[in-house]
Design a binder for these strands. Structure first.
Lengths: 211, 211
DNA sequence: ACCGGGGTGTTACCTGGGGTAACATCGTCG
DNA sequence: CGACGATGTTACCCCAGGTAACACCCCGGT
């Protein structure tokens, strides 16, 4: 038979293991879960990265499509942005395993710049960039701003969403509001607090652990 | 003699190797560079993570201190934010090796949520949170907003800075402007572009709000 | 009926990295 | 001197990624 069906079965097994043990699951474990041995996995996926990549693509497709759709909703801009934020947070909330794969940069990557965002997130960043380019009038700077903002917003949501998932400090809608407010310049618009400036020395205000 | 001097020498060697081979350099390689063998490294640093952590702390101290200082500059808020952004970008620009360590989440981490930001970046996020809490009047939501924004801004700068370092699409000051503009709500304030709806949409809404 | 190819699967092995045990040495301080 | 705390070593363990060589099974072509 064509290799595709088997591949799917193997991915199912890999999926189970990864959801149980995290993205660092060993090839042996995955093979065992599939009831077979390693060489078969390597025949199908080349190497570990290939397997993880296939798994990631399979999982992130839904989230990416959802974000893309949210970016195209015919809403007021603020509502659309909130919708996108909510879509992303809902996605990572519903399936944390997906989230783990999503943010897993490059399994055993060589290093260097360019991998602060995992591939799946890079795709989301590109969607945002495209949406900004298509929807917002930014004058001559549009390309630069759209790209920088696409990456920046993606990173912002990644880091904030990660923190939210971990500590659950508030409801999802409230988190969406907080992030949308940030994007809407609330940081810039808010008033100064009166004093609260550093005393005089470069000393510590409260608890600056010097790691 | 106290262990400290030797430790420093070992860190120097590790530093050389990491800068040459990236953060995935092996303990053997580091030991060889130091002219010794593995067990000594383990005596000093416990395990690989300990070594990398020590290396990271050594390198990121400067950047963290610089960012902290920038956050406390007595400037208009916009200028202060630009100053912080510029400080960060200048830091990663000047020493990309530092940057690599900075963003290296947890060497061989177990996975899960909470490590989207590497430890060093988490410290930066905390600094931002503190600064926002101390300097900006955000009403009742201050704690939530400050924390969410601290993480969010850090992630934004991480992702955008990563892209900037990699592709160098513009000068540093221009990049700073782009990010500050984003934080200042320029995305929200800009006008809509006229049409630019998705071409592949199944059906076009008769009177889409604002697309 | 035979054979070959593409699929399935296996056992056994290599490489190399993290990490440890056991042992040997040197210098200093009581 | 002896003990301690540092230096260092060789040799080993465990396990993960990855590969070689071999075996089976089915199906379609000649």
């Amino acid at each position: 038979m064509s290799r595709e069906p088997r591949r799917e079965q193997l991915l199912n097994a890999a999926d189970r293991v990864v959801q149980r043990e995290g993205p660092s699951a060993s090839m042996n474990a995955i093979a065992a879960e599939a009831g077979i041995t390693k060489p078969i996995l390597y025949r199908h996926f080349g190497d570990r990265n290939g397997l993880i990549r296939a798994l990631t693509e399979r999982h992130t497709g839904g989230l990416l499509a959802a974000v893309r759709a949210a970016l195209a909703e015919p809403l007021e801009r603020r509502d659309r942005v909130e919708h996108v934020l909510d879509t992303y947070l809902a996605g990572i909330e519903a399936r944390p395993q997906v989230y783990r794969l999503l943010t897993h940069p490059e399994p055993g990557d060589p290093s260097g710049a360019g991998n602060a965002l995992a591939p799946a997130l890079r795709q989301i960043a590109e969607e945002i960039t495209r949406a900004v380019q298509n929807q917002v009038d930014l004058g001559a700077d549009r390309d630069l701003l759209a790209e920088a903002w696409g990456r920046g917003i993606t990173g912002m949501v990644l880091a904030a969403g990660d923190w939210w998932l971990e500590t659950r400090p508030c409801s999802r809608t409230r988190m969406v509001q907080a992030l949308a407010d940030l994007l809407w310049g609330r940081l810039a618009a808010a008033a100064d607090l009166p004093t609260a400036v550093l005393p005089a020395a470069p000393a510590e205000p409260a608890a600056p652990d010097t790691d």
